[in-house]
Simulated assay, not measured.
Amino acid sequence: MLVFAAGSGLEAVAAVKAGARHVLATDIDRYALAAMTLNAAANGVAFAMSGADWIGAPVDGYEVVLLGDVFFERPLADRVGAWAASAVAAGALVLVGDPGRSYLPRDRMDALADYRVPTTRALEDADIKHTTVWRFRG
């Protein structure tokens, strides 16, 4: 499993705990890599990490690709969308978690699940954030 823009590594931790054999969590932010390291240790799991920019890289060997909240600006959304489409074309299941960002290409996705996530006004514009898990069609 490839976790792109993994942030704190929450999805990677969950994947390992759910039985994934190989998880690679990627993020270009060095603070995210530090957070992943801490969260893996705190949860007693291990997974590979990379600080490389994976956009455009082949996803050979990864059956599942997870994309976090990455559709928040047009240039990034365009690049990630094209890369996600190539991953689907290569046979990967691409799942996207999104809290309703403007540049999410909804016309290329199927909604799988909706969640209401409690948050804080210090971080978000609402006390409850609605988020959806999508399957990217390509």
Rank of each mutant, 00 (worst) to 15 (best):
F4N: 11
A6L: 08
G7V: 07
S8L: 12
L10W: 05
E11D: 13
A12R: 13
A12Q: 12
V13H: 12
A14M: 15
K17V: 03
G19W: 03
L24F: 10
A25V: 04
D27W: 09
Y31M: 12
Y31H: 15
Y31W: 15
A35W: 08
M36A: 09
M36C: 11
M36S: 12
L38W: 10
N39E: 05
A41G: 10
G44M: 05
A46H: 11
A46P: 00
A46Q: 12
F47E: 07
F47V: 06
A48E: 15
G51P: 06
W54N: 00
I55H: 03
I55N: 06
G56W: 02
Y62E: 13
E63Y: 00
V65K: 08
L67M: 11
V70F: 05
P75Y: 06
P75G: 12
V80Y: 08
G81F: 02
A82E: 15
A84K: 01
S86R: 13
S86M: 04
S86C: 05
V88I: 03
L93N: 10
V94S: 07
L95P: 10
G97Y: 05
D98M: 06
P99D: 08
P99W: 04
G100C: 09
G100I: 11
Y103M: 11
R106K: 14
D107P: 03
D110R: 14
L112G: 06
A113Y: 12
D114E: 15
R116I: 04
V117R: 14
P118F: 03
P118R: 07
P118L: 08
T119Q: 02
T120K: 00
R121L: 15
R121E: 01
L123P: 00
L123A: 14
A126Y: 00
D127S: 05
K129T: 06
H130Y: 11
V133I: 14
R135L: 11
F136T: 01
F136H: 15
R137P: 00
G138S: 11
G138P: 03
G138A: 05
